[in-house]
Simulated assay, not measured.
Amino acid sequence: MTAGGSNRLLTPEEVASWLKVSELTIKNKYRAWGLKPQKVGRLLRFRERDIVAYLEEHYG
C-alpha cells in the first residue's frame, strides 16, 4: 500500500458508505467535489488513494 492509499477501485456504493452519504450523492456530486472517476466499461469506480487524498485535503 502506498502512502496515500491503495490503487484498489471502489464502487460508488463503497465510497458512499465510507463518506456516510448516499450513493446518489456520490453519483451527482463527484465532479463538483473533484473526485476523479475511473471508468470500467460503463461503470464508475474510484481509486482508494484519490478518496484518501480528498479527505486529507478537505478535512485533515
Rank of each mutant, 00 (worst) to 15 (best):
Q38I: 15
T2R: 01
V21S: 00
G41A: 06
V21I: 14
G41P: 05
T11E: 06
V52H: 03
G41L: 11
T2K: 04
G34D: 08
E14F: 07
N28Q: 15
V21L: 03
T2F: 04
E23K: 15
N28A: 09
L24V: 12
V21W: 00
Y54R: 08
K20Y: 03
S17D: 04
P12S: 13
E23Y: 01
H58M: 12
S17Y: 10
L24I: 13
T2H: 03
A3R: 13
E23D: 10
R31D: 10
Y59K: 07
V52Q: 10
P12L: 01
L44G: 08
E56H: 13
A16Y: 01
R31N: 09
W33G: 03
Q38S: 09
N7A: 05
G5N: 11
L9D: 08
K29F: 05
G4P: 05
W18H: 09
F46A: 05
A53L: 13
R42D: 12
E14G: 03
S6H: 02
A3H: 06
M1A: 09
V15M: 09
V15P: 09
T2N: 11
E57T: 14
S22I: 02
Q38L: 10
P12F: 01
R45L: 11
L44M: 12
R8E: 15
G4A: 13
Q38A: 14
Q38W: 07
A3I: 11
F46H: 07
L43A: 13
G4R: 10
L35Y: 05
L35A: 04
H58S: 06
L19Q: 05
K27Q: 15
A16Q: 06
A3C: 00
N28T: 13
Q38G: 00
V40P: 04
K29L: 08
S6D: 13
A53N: 13
G60Q: 12
S17N: 12
K36Q: 15
R42W: 00
T25N: 05
R8I: 02
G5V: 01
V21F: 02
E13Q: 13
R49N: 14
E56R: 15
G41N: 07
F46V: 06
S22F: 06
R31F: 10
P37H: 12
G41C: 09
N28I: 03
A16H: 08
T11F: 03
G34F: 03
K39M: 05
Y54S: 01
G41I: 09
E56I: 04
T2Q: 07
L43R: 11
L35W: 03
Y30T: 02
A32P: 01
K36R: 15
Y30N: 01
W18F: 09
R42F: 04
Y30Q: 01
E57M: 03
L43Y: 07
K39I: 10
P37N: 12
G34N: 13
L9C: 07
A53I: 06
I26V: 15
